[in-house]
């Protein structure tokens, strides 16, 4: 690894260590049959708790979990709010009272990518840096002020060519302040590589959301995958 890569990676790591920083290490992926490009954190939690099995747009989804490992722990902590033991107890409660099924459990990132790629409606999570060819990456949208607004216009961020050549990727977390009319008034960087974050923020400032009676805040993640 050359000096530039070490420096850029270290800068990214330093800024990403904050509450909720686990999100930057995780990428949520879905089968190509899933129409949505983003999913709200609240919806993701409901899907993993089997309280919901289709997205707001009607697409049926099937959650996939990992057996163990740091990505698994971080995902549960960040998005489900349960430890692995608690989640296992929860799923067994569903299974043995007839109120749900045990989700597919896979042993590694590669297994998850392979299963999600070939299984209609599958949704899973893997390390942010892993190659997820064959599956699409979903952006995570966090609802602020208790309201959830629909994204109408999304401008994709530019991938800085230097970082792509150096194979540096990751996930950027942003806090957007959205005006009642739907335009993004302000963008705060919460985590991720600063160069990627600059590009992500520039794109997010051009996004348009559905109108709302009041100004709201929304936390989002934008993944950067150098292999794409």
């Amino acid at each position: 690894m050359n000096y530039t890569k070490i420096l850029l990676s270290a800068a990214g790591f330093a800024i990403s260590v904050s509450p909720g920083a686990f999100a930057a290490d995780i990428k949520v992926i879905a089968n190509s049959s899933v129409r949505a490009d983003t999913i709200s954190a609240a919806e993701l939690k409901l899907i993993y708790l089997e309280q919901k099995n289709s997205l707001d747009d009607g697409t049926r989804v099937e959650p996939v979990i990992q057996k163990d490992g740091q990505v698994h722990k971080n995902f549960l902590h960040e998005y489900v709010g349960k430890s692995d033991d608690d989640l296992q107890t929860y799923y067994r409660t569903l299974v043995f009272t007839g109120k749900g099924s045990m989700p597919k459990e896979l042993g590694s990132d590669a297994d998850v990518v392979a299963y999600v790629s070939r299984t209609k409606g599958a949704i899973g999570y893997v390390s942010a840096g892993i190659d997820t060819d064959g599956a699409k990456t979903l952006g995570i949208v966090y609802a602020g002020d208790g309201s959830q607004r629909r994204l109408i216009t999304r401008v994709e961020p530019r991938y800085p060519e230097t970082l792509r050549q150096l194979n540096i990727g990751g996930t950027v977390r942003l806090l957007l302040t959205i005006a009642p009319k739907g335009n993004v008034q302000n963008v705060d960087v919460l985590g991720g590589n600063p160069i990627l974050a600059e590009s992500a923020a520039a794109a997010a400032k051009q996004w348009i959301y559905s109108p709302s009676p009041s100004r709201t805040t929304t936390e989002i993640t934008i993944p950067f995958d150098p292999s794409h």
């Binding site: 099995n53 289709s54 049926r60 299974v95 043995f96 007839g98 109120k99 749900g100 099924s101």
Partner: peptide
């Protein structure tokens, strides 16, 4: 002891018995 079987028949329909 107990033994159960269950299946997600459609998007919205789940059946099972124990």
């Amino acid at each position: 002891f107990g033994l159960n079987m269950c299946s997600q028949v459609t998007d919205k329909l789940h059946i099972g018995a124990q």
